[in-house]
Design a protein around this nucleic acid. Sequence first.
DNA 1: GCGATGACAGATTTCAATATCTGTCATTCA
DNA 2: TGAATGACAGATATTGAAATCTGTCATCGC
Lengths: 197, 197
Amino acid sequence: MAATTETLTAERILEATEEVLRRYGPAKATVVDVARVLGVSHGSVYRHFRTKAALREAVTERWLERTIVALRPHVETGEPADERLTGWLTALFALKRRKAGGDPELMATFQVLIGENSAVVDRHEEHLVEQIARILEDGHREGVFTAPERDLTSTARAVFDATDRFHNPAHAADWSAPDAEDAFTAVVSLVQRALRA
Amino acid sequence: MAATTETLTAERILEATEEVLRRYGPAKATVVDVARVLGVSHGSVYRHFRTKAALREAVTERWLERTIVALRPHVETGEPADERLTGWLTALFALKRRKAGGDPELMATFQVLIGENSAVVDRHEEHLVEQIARILEDGHREGVFTAPERDLTSTARAVFDATDRFHNPAHAADWSAPDAEDAFTAVVSLVQRALRA
DNA sequence: GCGATGACAGATTTCAATATCTGTCATTCA
DNA sequence: TGAATGACAGATATTGAAATCTGTCATCGC
């Protein structure tokens, strides 16, 4: 509502867009709203983002990037690779679950954005799979994991896919079930048994 | 449209409801439509099903039941348990994928019904998990699978969860990707490695 | 000169009036 | 007598006119 004297940057627009999405949800958030928050005309927003879709895509990217950053430390702990893998998967599940439980509406908004930007999501998944692959590679070097039958990336992808139920927002509704924790642990130990030497 | 002289049974109503859902989709299918197909007044439909929701639930149940029946033969082949497990999982994936690919609109309808009837879906999943558990039990007896670390049912559940991406209709959109087959094979061999003696 | 503006056309959404549907039940008919 | 009917009240969906939004661009002012 208040006009600031700061220069208008892509960064500031993204922040405003996030705020508007949070407040009004994905269906009602408009470019005009974003401009109003920034105290500029909506034409100015279009100087930085070609379309509304591009703006929302950029927000999605930012949002997903945060998960990558939050998980990075778990890739490079001093622990043995098998423990690191469990730690990484647990951190991912905890992260997603905390978000979903803490603010279900925001999660719903997020899911809509994800549905709109599958290309961004694909790239994001590739990053996550890379992090798993790095742990598997270390595990192989340490002798904790057996030599993979197939290439590292597709094994990493298999680990990602096998645990999909516990990080894919499409399943967020199941995460509050009383046995979600047990189900997660069971799948993780299944995966560990498959990988361990 | 044509009035038949046959007596009105729950079975005939369910068939008509399926037809109406197929033709108009979940949003536009009405009880009046169902009655029209049967050539009766909608009041007569309410003699057999208390509400529209109950009617749709019954259709969902019937629909899911067909999967259970189609998979039953795969539980009891003469094959060793590990091959049977792969066979069962492959059959489930193929079944779902054929449905999704063959008639995407019908699949979308089905997904809406599933969303409306989570209790029915939960019971259905339990049946599928039971089928897996039976294969695991045989495998343990045959010495093909290692003694389970945890109880059979929760291991079976873990197998079901780990392969979720390849049977949960929520992921139907991914099944036509060129690498879906490979991803499936990778997860199945991961699961097999975890279970084998 | 360069970022910002706001009027504009066409696309999309909202809103309220209208129509249809759900679920009930007193009545009919075989 | 017991299945089937259809009129009905309240809930839900449809529709089309009015309002708002998206994306462009000629113009402004620092």
